Computed example of a mutant assay.
Amino acid sequence: MNRTRLLLCAPVAATLIALTACAPSSSGGDAGGAAGDKVALVVAQGGLGDQSYNDLANVGYKRVLESTGLNGSTIESEDIVGQGEQLLRRAGQAGINLVVDLEFSHNEVIGKVAADFPDSNWVIFNAESEGDNVASVLFQEQEGSYLAGALAALQTTNTSDPNINPEKVLGVIGGASSVGIDKFLVGFIEGAKAVDPEVEVLTAYSNDFADPAKGQQLAQSMFEQGADIVYAVAGGTGAGVIQAAQDAGRYAIGVDDNQDGVAPGNVLTSVLKRADLAVESVVADYAAGSFPGGKTITFGLKEDAVGLTDFEFTKDAIAPETLAKIEELKAAIVAGDITVHNVVTDGYPDYFKGQ
């Protein structure tokens, strides 16, 4: 995007213009003394338009700009991983008061940049970083994925459903092999095995968060191997997984945002990750003068920040006892009776190694 090229190449004064010229305007919000401060949202891999994580986070971002009176902009790059430190330093040099970074791979560089720009506040999503002016935001994605795995394992035996075949095979496709993505995969497999130890779960990585063609290819391969439900944890690449499910008359499971309506009847459910709520919460805290610098904030099932959709288009295909079981498992996780394995804190389980 032209905006990104300006960020990378322009002198500091021009960079400031680039960051503020496209800012959404807002008025009338009670900003707790922060109205007019400059905020930037660093968009993660896959970019805006992914119909998933980035788009959902941007919804919350726009909402909180409107309610607080902060001046906001977005920062995108086709190489958001490789150019991360350069982009963050540009934001610091431009005097951005609050930088909210959605790209988990920036967890190491954001701490260094934040130390060099102590007058700015920084937020890293899906990772932890150090610094009194850095807040870290983590989600318990493994909890929502556990419920999706349990649902898929129960549904794959429901052969009265025309989208289901006789084989007890599921699939899950990650955007990259990393702890941030693998916590989804491990949670899904754990949930599936908890209700049916005999179910097989195929795994693959697209190594791209914005390649629907690759997602479609991988999902088609899984359907050909007997899978009837494939979970996509790959941002915009997941659009291809949903398309493959629609073409094959099978199911996809969406991620981050509610993707059930993308292919009604072929998206069994979506694993919600309310990035919109998290962005809105941390920016609102900043505006109120209570920025959680130096802290890690966690959003999970208990906070209603992860979970499954309401099966708007598939409820009639799912047995009532299956839906009851999912509610039972959800309550057990919230109560602490079930603790879902988290690869970030617990490492990788033996069964996942070599997947």
Results as ranks from 00 to 15, higher is better:
Asn2Arg: 11
Gly28His: 02
Val230Glu: 02
Thr74Val: 14
Asp132His: 13
Ile242Met: 07
Gly354Leu: 00
Gln217Cys: 06
Ser178Met: 06
Ser270Trp: 01
Ser177Ala: 14
Glu128Thr: 15
Arg250Glu: 05
Val283Asn: 14
Thr237Gln: 05
Leu268Gln: 02
Ala248His: 07
Gly191Arg: 05
Glu141Val: 13
Ser221Phe: 08
Ala114Arg: 06
Gly347Ile: 09
His106Cys: 08
Val137Glu: 07
Ala335Arg: 05
Lys315Gly: 10
Val282Pro: 09
Gln259Tyr: 06
Gly69His: 14
Ile242Pro: 01
Val344Arg: 12
Ser145Thr: 07
Gly46Ser: 11
Ala278Ile: 08
Gly111Glu: 11
Pro166Asn: 11
Cys9Tyr: 14
Val233Tyr: 01
Thr309Val: 10
Thr156Gly: 00
Leu8Ala: 02
Gln216Asn: 11
Glu66Gln: 15
Arg3Gly: 11
Gly289Asn: 00
Ala35Ile: 05
Thr298Asp: 08
Thr68Asn: 10
Ile17Lys: 12
Tyr146Asp: 00
Gly32Tyr: 00
Glu66His: 10
Gly236Pro: 09
Arg89Pro: 02
Pro166His: 10
Lys302Cys: 05
Asn258Ser: 09
Glu78Phe: 15
Asp50Thr: 06
Ala332Ile: 12
Asp50Trp: 03
Phe352Leu: 03
Asp256His: 12
Asp196Gly: 07
Thr339Pro: 02
Asp182Ser: 02
Asp182Cys: 03
Gln155Ser: 05
Pro264Met: 07
Thr20Ile: 02
Ser26Leu: 07
Ile297Val: 15
Ala148Glu: 04
Pro264Ser: 04
Ala317Gly: 05
Glu78Arg: 15
Gly307Ile: 00
Val267Cys: 06
Ala192Ser: 09
Lys168Ile: 05
Leu272Val: 07
Tyr351His: 01
Ile75Gln: 02
Cys9Arg: 13
Glu128Lys: 14
Glu200Thr: 15
Ala176Asp: 10
Phe125Met: 10
Gly307Trp: 00
Ala35Ser: 13
Ser52Phe: 13
Val195Ile: 12
Thr4Tyr: 04
Gly84Ser: 14
Gly180Glu: 06
Ala176Lys: 10
Asp285Ile: 11
Glu128Ser: 13
Thr237Ala: 08
Ala227Asn: 07
Ala34His: 13
Ala194Asn: 12
Ile297Met: 15
Gly336Val: 03
Ala213Pro: 10
Thr339Gly: 11
Thr309Arg: 09
Gln140Tyr: 08
Gln243Leu: 13
Val195Met: 03
Val179Ala: 14
Pro118Gln: 12
Gly47Thr: 11
Phe139Ser: 09
Glu312Tyr: 09
Gly180Gln: 01
Glu85Lys: 06
Ala284Thr: 15
Ala244Trp: 01
Ala252Asn: 04
Ile75Ala: 00
Asp119Met: 14
Gly92Asn: 03
Gly191Phe: 11
Ala317Lys: 11
Ala288Glu: 03
Val230Pro: 00
